[in-house]
Design a binder for these strands. Sequence first.
DNA 1: CATCGGCATTTTGTATTCAGAATACTTAGT
DNA 2: ACTAAGTATTCTGAATACAAAATGCCGATG
Lengths: 205, 205
Amino acid sequence: MVIERRPLREQIRDELMERLTRGEFAAGTDVNEAVLAAELGVSRTPLREALITLTGEGVLESNQGRGFRFAPVSRKEFRELVAVVAALESLALESSDAAHLRKIAPELLRLAQGFPDPVAEHAVVDRRDDEWHGLLLSGCPNERLLDLLTGVKAGMRREPVARESEEHCEIARRLLEDDLPGAIEALKANWVGGMERMLAHIPQE
Amino acid sequence: MVIERRPLREQIRDELMERLTRGEFAAGTDVNEAVLAAELGVSRTPLREALITLTGEGVLESNQGRGFRFAPVSRKEFRELVAVVAALESLALESSDAAHLRKIAPELLRLAQGFPDPVAEHAVVDRRDDEWHGLLLSGCPNERLLDLLTGVKAGMRREPVARESEEHCEIARRLLEDDLPGAIEALKANWVGGMERMLAHIPQE
DNA sequence: CATCGGCATTTTGTATTCAGAATACTTAGT
DNA sequence: ACTAAGTATTCTGAATACAAAATGCCGATG
């Protein structure tokens, strides 16, 4: 049995992301380091380290003397992030092994058809969607790309995702037919569509 | 006159990147925090914060109990990063304002033609290349994309860049002719070509 | 009643200290 | 002479301490 030993800052980072997806932190609110550290049962030092990594990922922003705050994603930024994610996922799909894609296509279709109702709890929908996209990109050998993707996606995880089961099915079907360009097109359409649906929930600035 | 006040961690980060491009840190060597902090005239705390941000950017890597080390970029990783940068710069160019591109095209051509000899000092070549790509993407409204790009590029800045003046001219010429798809193609070719040339300097793992 | 200035309090940014893990070294035993 | 256990030293990871900046409060003043 291997005892896992990770630096506190990483555990804290994960915990904060977890809480963020559970909606515990409202966008725009600033972090009180002492309070949060006490709540987590750690000192300010590793907490600040975690906050700094999250700042690098765009989840937080920092101002000199004013500490950290949860970065509110404006409509503009949201569009920007979606464009980036769409491009990166396309690249990932493009550089994936064709045989592997063929192999996982049925599973993707099955999962997409079994997607929970859109009105289900956000956390559940999120997890399922993550799972699906994770499987979709599981054949991508570009590890740096995948790392980058998780980071960028973390920066978007503020508003509930609003994905469409049908669009996912479409992607899976294209892959079943060995139509990679078509799948990429469908993937981009999925992001654009998802973006429009999500923007409906983000207030005008 | 505005007095600039930035957190120490950011100044340290920049200073470290500066030193890195000057070739002061060999890849693979690990950081001695106390020594480096003394050298910079700061305490370990903001230094560690800078090291953590650089880890997020892929410049360093950290191992539990063993501290930070300058991440050696393997040939594989280098390829991965180039693919990502090419895709991101393409997206940036794609989403740029066409009129703006037309306007800067002559300047781009002029700069490309005046590129220093490839055998010039690395730091100089680097700065010129940065400048050129900065101007090329100056019309891109997607700020998050640009931020991401600088981060990813930071992770590659280990080996001297080996860019070709002619390829840059080609991109500029396409823009002059209002041929955006052609410019994007040339840009991708530039990255692929640059990659091949750079890989010659990176030892096999 | 609104506004400005000064004081008190809070909170961040940085330095310092402390504990524990990793590495280097020494020495005993074969 | 070589190995290995035990010890000393170094260095990281985390906690605490301190200084300065920011915020809030209150009263004086127009």
